[in-house]
Design a protein around this nucleic acid. Structure first.
Lengths: 320, 320
DNA sequence: TTGAAAGCGTTACCAG
DNA sequence: CTGGTAACGCTTTCAA
């Protein structure tokens, strides 16, 4: 049997009320009593039952975090940021990986809702209406997505895209392919929008069909990219870019000599491969941390937009 | 305000007791009442507060999962397995990333203990005594580690190592380096032990110093490996192997022509790089799932040992 | 088959 | 400064 507040109270010869005060409002209890209670609590190994506490205070000390696919290294990075900040604030984190299944997500959140003080939603595909509904049921912060009226943390995609295109233009590229991610993904729509805005005059843009946001997506579309006779390609994300790299290598296409490849996200992997991947770094730890801050400070309307940074590495070079 | 059982009871014109019965023991309540209650509950969007339920039943419907570093793609794979199985069993998962900080782990677990039905511990470095203590406080299953008296899911490391060494021997390798992981890591000790057992007669083994179990660890030790004049190297894990690959490439050492490289884990990344990494695949999803099964079926003593599988890819070849 | 009441562990409020 | 009591939302006796 776990040790409860009553055990401590009995052992210390005080009431439960005094125990709880000694522990959570030390200043209102006489020092001698306080110290004795604290000592006994420690020696008994007492930890308040957070569920019981939550029942009465309305605050559970828990956070929910929803991500679409932990297999994409982008998301573990976010999770780490969330965890770090949450633990600092003495909160525990419920994690749910929805496996890219938008249908299941809302249900998952609702099951968690009562057990958490708020939810961080990293859910590029969930319907906007669903998100709005959820946000009325439980404090919600969106990660990497914007929905009117809901707090969110995003990145400066437009500026990131501008950095990417400027880099390629400076290298002499004038005809560039974009490998699109899932059609229904907010992030993809945002990237396409930014890309079009940024290339309007300077560059000819070739958009391929949509692929799954994974390594396999890149592999599958690589030959189309080659056939499009571009000198550079921007991928929806790093995983897709790595898929391109892989298939290019298999076909004997040299990167960056024959074609330049540029990714998005800056997953740790991007720096580990050969040639290393030039990519637009999105804030990950910081996004997670900022999300937790918004949630815990009850900034339920606020939007934060974090800077992005082009990481120039080996996979981009002069247009041939 | 969230909708509670009382709201449903009032709306349905029954008592709270009947509502809870209609929902959790449908057979003991009159069909007409049951259906009406269910309908109203659904229309009101009622979900039982699991924390309150846990208070009385002693079962929370939550699981805790501790991993040392989500940045290592091995662990997200495990998390996915755990999640999948936990959700099937209608359980939610608390995730804690300890950031390779064994000191913090025990405290984290204890904070969670009251809120979960059990804990999955993936904690290669925590002291054995600490683990034993924890296991008496909360149902515990160890992942990838064995401690007497505590339930665990591990892999057949010895057999995996045998497969790896046989493969290298068949390719003509007679002098092999092993890049060791953290000295205090159970997995590393196990690998060293297996490796020694398996190489006793056939192969000359050169063990390098211990490195951090990350990409950087491999990079940092690569030159030592080269100086050791071996024809093949087995790394503590895939991340370390990728670090070796990276530094070898930078030094103009061709893999597998000049040296063969073999990893451990089979993280997704291993198949994506060039040359693809030969590695011993450890069960990941299955380990997570098996762990959840042990926990939920209250097999608090059982040990399961899952098979491993050598994945032969481009990074190993004939000894030169 | 249903309802009333007790109680899970905690904290908030009100007396003293 | 401290203790008693009520209440959080739920499930489980025990009676009816």
């Amino acid at each position: 049997m776990a040790v409860t507040i009553k055990d401590v109270a009995r052992a210390a010869g005080v009431s439960a009320a005094t125990v709880t005060r000694a522990l959570s409002k030390p200043e209102v209890v006489r020092p001698a009593t306080r110290d004795r209670v604290k000592e006994i609590a420690a020696s008994l190994g007492y930890h308040p039952n957070r569920a019981a506490r939550g029942l009465i205070t309305g605050r559970t000390g828990n956070l929910g975090l929803l991500v679409p696919d932990l297999g994409n290294p982008f998301f573990p990075s976010i999770v780490k940021g969330v965890q770090a900040r949450a633990h600092e604030a003495d909160h525990a984190v419920f994690l749910a990986d929805t496996d890219e299944d938008p249908a299941a997500e809302a249900g998952l959140v609702r099951k968690l809702a009562k057990q958490v003080d708020g939810v961080l939603l990293c859910s590029p595909r969930m319907a906007e209406a669903e998100i709005r509904a959820l946000a009325t049921e439980v404090p919600t912060v969106l990660l990497y997505r914007r929905v009117p009226g809901v707090a969110s943390v995003t990145a400066e995609f437009l500026d990131g895209m501008r950095q990417a295109v400027s880099h390629l233009v400076a290298l002499g590229h004038r005809r560039i392919a974009y490998v699109a991610g899932p059609r229904t993904s907010w992030a993809n729509r945002e990237r396409v929008r930014s890309l079009r805005a940024v290339t309007r005059t300077r560059v000819e843009l070739v958009e391929t069909g949509n692929v799954v946001p994974q390594f396999e997506g890149g592999v599958s579309v690589a030959d189309q990219v080659l056939a499009a006779e571009v000198t550079a390609v921007i991928a929806y994300n790093d995983l897709v870019a790595l898929g391109l790299l892989h298939r290019f290598a298999a076909r004997g296409v040299a990167v960056p000599h024959d074609i330049s490849v540029l990714g998005f996200d800056d997953i740790p992997l991007a720096a580990m491969v050969h040639p290393a991947l030039t990519t637009v770094a999105l804030p990950k730890d910081q996004a997670g941390q900022a999300g937790v801050d918004l949630l815990l400070r009850e900034r339920h309307r606020e939007r934060r937009e974090l800077p992005t940074q082009l990481m120039v590495r080996g996979s981009t070079g002069p247009a041939r």
